[in-house]
Design a protein around this nucleic acid. Structure first.
Lengths: 158, 158, 158, 158
DNA sequence: TTTT
DNA sequence: TTTT
């Protein structure tokens, strides 16, 4: 490939995620994310600028969103841009650009009850259910940062 | 700020850039960029997926685009997402998501005559033409990667 | 330029930042940042892997670090890699790779007293003191995300 | 996880990659990559700054490096930082920071004979198990850009 | 040396 | 529609 299509966002959810399940029990989550950047203009005035993004998560990440994200949650999203187009009932061509997330980091301070273990989430759009036992859809999110086997071994031959 | 809105693209221009000049002689360039990613699906079949992005460049970067970019050019673009909305003449709400570029790297092999110096371009959304004398639009693009003064001095006190 | 050198980190400070002031009252901050990634290995076991980074901030960002960051702070850092080398007193060649930050986002939930205004920080390595009045070293850091003038004007000619 | 450790580089190889095979026929490639950034300093002088990085690739990516990369190749590398430490024979503590690549894009203009199909490479920690020897350790690395199954289906329920 |  |  000679292409790169990467988006990195940190922002807050405008509403609770909308999660649905497709055939095959595949979860899809969708939510709006506000990224606010503040800077001084040349006059030195503080300017705050909010941009809204539509984020789509699949499978394991969608399930995490359903469990742990809600209106106001602060998250880091890494993904790619995808523009879909369709015609509405009046025949008008419509476009929507979304960020399809491959990685999710929850940045809210956890003040949870419990052990907080669930706070450790990460994953990627790329699920590998094929490797998993029966019934295990939506678990085990091998993610972007999974190091290749053998790497841990500190026996680099250099 | 607690927000991040960052896009990184590598792809080819679908057409020559469309460059216009606003009042104040401010250049704005716009072009479509195709990012193609190729991967194997689970069946091992090679799949190629092209996504089209609208890229907008301002000022110095727009002028670089005008001078050096054309249909087919391979570029690295770093920028941020921005969605604009408006109503068309029929009163339909329309949305368009664009990538506003803060940095541009030309990746084509230069087979240029001459010194190739012009090949070295970079810049950022944060132009500072205000500092420049009259007539000097489009010069001196202090960019993202401009190191702070004094840094070169290798006298880090640690 | 045909190069890109970019680092993006989210992690926690291992200690309070070490801040020093060089000639000209230029601030330099240095701290260790731990990025911890957790994933499941192929056996399904949760594995946590921490990497330590040396982060260096200059000028305005260094001053922000001094004021607001401390041991444990969660931050987003965007910057570039820089490797320095020197010889120690025994004449051994030493190398140290650091992340020179161009952008800083504080991700801790603020439970501060006060207005929280100080929470809005951002900046970049690229200072522009030249534009500023006398005596104003270290202020007004127009940063990476400063939109070019005129952009706010929603009069894109396309 | 609450951590992110990401590096993005575009630069040229300083030498041909050094590729070795570990037990299990696991390929590891290592090379130096120069990222050169050019900018104008405050006096307007063009300054060029080259940084050298050590890049390590594993498995499928290492094999691609062996086949297609050589001294001078222009590449995009996405990966993470990793610092290793050890003691040399004199008992001095040594550190080396490397970029472990998860994704590789070859940016050289292909003037190849043939179809150039091999030019389309990408990967991530994630390889293409078909290339691997017997024993099949190290299979099925779902990679950064592999879209989740079902996503192609344009039947988003929103 | 951090954090969950 | 979020957050500071």
């Amino acid at each position: 490939m000679r292409g790169v299509n990467k988006v990195i966002l940190i922002g807050n959810l405008g509403r609770d995620p909308d999660v649905q399940f497709l055939e095959g029990n595949i979860a899809v989550a969708k939510f709006s994310l506000a990224t606010t950047e503040t800077f001084k203009d040349r006059a030195g005035k503080l300017i705050s600028q909010t941009e809204w993004h539509t984020v789509v998560l699949w499978r394991g990440l969608a399930e995490l969103a359903q469990k742990y994200l809600h209106k106001g949650s602060l998250v880091y999203i890494e993904g790619r841009l995808r523009t879909r187009s369709w015609e509405d009932k009046e025949g008008n061509k419509k476009f929507a650009t979304e960020v399809v997330g491959d990685n999710l980091v929850m940045l809210d301070k956890r003040m949870d009850v419990g052990n907080g273990d669930h706070a450790v989430h990460h994953g990627s759009g790329s699920s590998t259910s094929g490797q998993q036992g029966p019934g295990h859809h939506g678990e085990g999110y091998p993610g972007i940062e999974i190091p290749p086997m053998g790497e841990a071994a500190d026996d680099l031959p250099f």
